[in-house]
């Protein structure tokens, strides 16, 4: 009889739930116990530096473009001391809008913007969730210790002339007629 089958299922459900009385909760008691966060956890956003200690961000605007909540704003500028080395004049992330999706990190061509395993970003005032470049920029290389965009890219910077990047030939002598 279908009614009995239903009744049995209902009671079985009750029994299964009731059995949980005798199991240990899975809850992690957060402030006292801290969970392990894997290195690729998508938490707070940082701006990293390249192995030479220079800012990695070249203000390409890709992170801002890809951001689904449009919470990244920046302005490109040139470093007067090293011509052609572009950097962000300001770089602002409004964390009160950020959804930690990590698209910015995926879009970043220079590994500058990285999400780190830190989620403790509670504030009492929303304006404190607005991070400027000073707040974002760290002094290390983050997850990618070796990459240096300017060693690969063909543009000239202060201490690297044309042809000085990895896998480049010296600049062409236009006046040469050699085959």
């Amino acid at each position: 009889m279908i009614v009995f089958a239903y009744t049995r299922d209902l009671l079985l459900g009750l029994w299964i739930v009731f059995k949980r009385t005798f199991t240990k909760p899975v809850t992690v008691q957060y402030p006292e116990e801290r969970p392990y966060l894997p290195p690729r956890w998508r938490g707070r956003i940082v701006l990293t530096r390249d192995p030479d200690g220079e800012e990695r961000c070249v203000a390409c605007h890709l992170c801002a473009a890809v951001c689904p909540v449009d919470c990244i704003a920046l302005q490109a500028a040139e470093d007067p001391t090293s011509y052609d080395r572009r950097y962000p004049e300001f770089f602002r992330i409004n964390f009160s809008r950020c959804i930690y999706c990590g698209y910015c990190e995926e879009a970043c061509p220079t590994y500058a913007i990285q999400l780190v395993p830190d989620f403790e970003q509670s504030e009492y005032a929303r304006r404190n969730m607005v991070y400027e470049k000073e707040d974002l920029l760290i002094s290390g290389t983050g997850k990618y210790p070796d990459y240096n965009f300017y060693r690969v890219a063909g543009v000239k910077i202060r201490d690297k002339d044309k042809g000085g990047a990895e896998n480049e030939r010296p600049p062409v002598d236009v006046k040469s007629l050699m085959p």
């Binding site: 949980r20 199991t23 240990k24 909760p25 899975v26």
Partner: peptide, 8 residues
């Protein structure tokens, strides 16, 4: 409810 849902 917490206990029955394996919470605290």
């Amino acid at each position: 409810l917490g206990i029955w849902q394996e919470r605290c």
